[in-house]
């Protein structure tokens, strides 16, 4: 399986996303924001970072990039798309996901290992998790507070489209402790925390067993690979 990672001006975690894809067992394909070409990939990751320095709104200018026309077409056609942090912001700005992200409630940039509960284990990126599995992956953002109208929120909750919720502490004031959501089809997922930073023992969050041994993020990537094999 080939999974594309789009690099935008100001992307930071594109190489980490490529590494996560490789460790999960797929082939990462570097894609460029200025091209109209997805190079025939089977899935897409929009990585974290500060595209265009968060000018206008976080993710807003990147969501208007040339390649986003192809990303939107592919997503609407059912291709699995994962937006992480700034990528999540782009997906909301591109109207592929509902809701929006605003500055953290406390006004501070938050960087911590964050506990989450995976509440939707049927999306293309979460089938490898058990229902309500609790995981820990890094979180690092300044504008991660998820907002939506009460009608939208009710619909997301009612349709089981909350992918992940913060547990222990709500770090940024997100409505309903929401850390990630999916679209109705379950192929497009946006996550504020960073699964790509918890994919290799020695470089992940601490666990009860050993320091830096957390690899809970890997399951997002192995899920989409397993999904592709089932569909093949």
């Amino acid at each position: 399986m080939r999974i594309g990672v789009v690099t935008f001006p100001g992307s930071l975690d594109d190489r980490d996303a490529q590494r996560a894809i490789r460790l999960a067992g797929a082939e990462p394909v570097a894609l460029w924001h200025g091209e109209h070409d997805l190079h025939g990939v089977d899935a897409l990751v929009l990585p974290g970072g500060f595209s265009y320095g968060d000018y206008l709104r976080a993710g807003a200018i990147a969501s208007l990039s040339p390649i986003m026309a192809e990303v939107i077409d592919a997503a609407n056609g059912g291709m699995p798309v994962l937006g992480i942090c700034n990528g999540f912001q782009m997906l909301t700005e591109a109207h592929l996901l509902e809701g929006g992200l605003i500055r953290n409630e406390a006004g501070r940039f938050i960087c911590r290992d964050q506990q989450l509960r995976i509440e939707n284990s049927t999306s293309d990126w979460t089938t490898g998790f058990t229902a309500n599995q609790e995981i820990t992956i890094p979180l690092k953002n300044g504008e991660g507070s998820f907002m939506a109208s009460s009608e939208t929120l009710e619909r997301l909750e009612g349709e089981g489209r909350i992918v992940a919720r913060y547990i222990g502490v709500n770090p940024n004031g997100s409505l309903g402790d929401i850390a990630g959501v999916t679209n109705a089809r379950g192929n497009v997922v946006g996550l504020m925390p960073h699964p790509e930073h918890a994919v290799e023992a020695g470089f992940g969050p601490d666990t009860a067993q050993a320091m830096s041994s957390g690899v809970d993020g890997l399951t997002f990537f192995t899920s989409v690979i397993a999904r592709a094999l089932v569909n093949a």
């Binding site: 206008l56 909301t92 700005e93 509902e98 929006g100 605003i102 907002m147 939506a148 109208s149 939208t152």
Partner: peptide, 9 residues
Amino acid sequence: SVLSNSVIE
């Protein structure tokens, strides 16, 4: 469509 995001602004 561009200068504002009606979800938050």
